[in-house]
Amino acid sequence: MFTGIVEKIGTVSALVKLDETETGGGGTSLTISDAAEILTDVHLGDSIAVNGTCLTVTEFTSDSFKVGVAPETLRRTNLGELTTGSPVNLERAVAGDIRFGGHFVQGHVDTVATILAKTPDGNALTVRFQPRDPEVLVYIVEKGYITLDGASLTITAVNDEEKWFEVMLVAYTQEKIIIPRKEVGQTVNLEVDMAGKYVEKQVKAQLEKGLAGMGLEKLVENIVKRTLKDMKIGV
Rank of each mutant, 00 (worst) to 15 (best):
T187E: 08
K66V: 11
G52W: 13
A171N: 14
E162F: 07
C54D: 10
G196W: 07
D160C: 02
D34P: 04
D63L: 00
V224T: 11
I9R: 08
R132Q: 15
K218V: 09
F2A: 03
K218T: 12
M168F: 01
I98C: 02
V50R: 06
K209G: 14
T84A: 01
S13T: 14
A151M: 14
D97C: 03
V109N: 08
V67N: 05
Y198M: 07
I146Y: 10
L169V: 08
V220L: 13
L90Q: 01
V199D: 06
T3C: 10
V67F: 10
K209T: 06
K225A: 08
F104K: 05
L169I: 05
D121Y: 09
T73D: 04
G215Q: 13
R181Q: 15
M168C: 15
T83F: 03
A14F: 11
G234E: 10
M194D: 01
E175I: 01
G210F: 12
D160G: 03
I233L: 15
T173M: 12
V127T: 12
I115S: 00
E162M: 09
F104E: 08
R99S: 02
A113H: 07
E59W: 10
V12P: 10
R75F: 01
E81N: 07
R76K: 15
R128D: 11
E208S: 11
E175Y: 03
T61I: 00
F129R: 04
